[in-house]
């Protein structure tokens, strides 16, 4: 629902409402691979509750999810699977690359890992850390919400 005709007040308000709705209940698809997955689970747990943002339901099926948090290192064997899961998600969808290994290959600059998940899927937010603590991940998620609300990421 990206507006192509700016200045139309009614469409802008509906667009804003759509953006608001999208950010307030973004369902993540679990793509927890390695250590970052544990921190992602900790973010969803009681201490750093993700439910206050409406995101505690991690949808197992990508068809019902709109956010894919790639948490962990993506190996060569896993890359086609990652792409397939991303393709199965319906639009609008966003990708957060969580951790150093997902963003750039991390400390493992070798034959086995894809050096950065953006080689395979388009990424919106990169969250650095090894592993990023739940606070960093939440900052990343909230930055994504901000960007969507402001219209910087148009889907």
């Amino acid at each position: 629902m990206a507006t192509t005709a700016p200045g139309n007040l009614l469409m802008t308000t509906v667009d804003k409402a759509a953006r608001w709705a999208r950010t307030r209940s973004m369902f993540p698809a679990t793509f927890g691979l390695a250590c970052c997955a544990i921190e992602m689970m900790a973010t969803g747990a009681a201490h750093y509750d993700l439910a206050r943002f409406g995101m505690e339901v991690f949808r197992a099926s990508p068809r019902q999810a709109d956010l894919m948090i790639v948490a962990g290192r993506v190996s060569q064997k896993m890359a086609p699977v990652l792409r397939q899961v991303f393709d199965q998600m319906p639009d609008p969808k966003w990708v957060i690359s969580m951790g150093a290994c997902a963003s750039t290959g991390g400390m493992f600059n070798n034959y086995a890992l894809v050096q950065g998940v953006d080689q395979v899927v388009p990424v919106d937010i990169y969250v650095p850390g090894c592993p990023p603590g739940p606070q960093s991940l939440m900052h990343g998620i909230l930055t994504l919400h901000d960007k969507i609300m402001k219209g910087e990421i148009v889907k």
Binding site: Q76, K77, G105, N109, N110, Y111, A112
Partner: peptide, 19 residues
């Protein structure tokens, strides 16, 4: 490794493959 991988990674003549 994936089934169609060529080479045996831990051999000393297989490079690290770093970018």
């Amino acid at each position: 490794m994936p089934d169609d991988w060529e080479g045996h990674p831990l051999r000393k003549d297989f490079g690290v493959g770093s970018v």
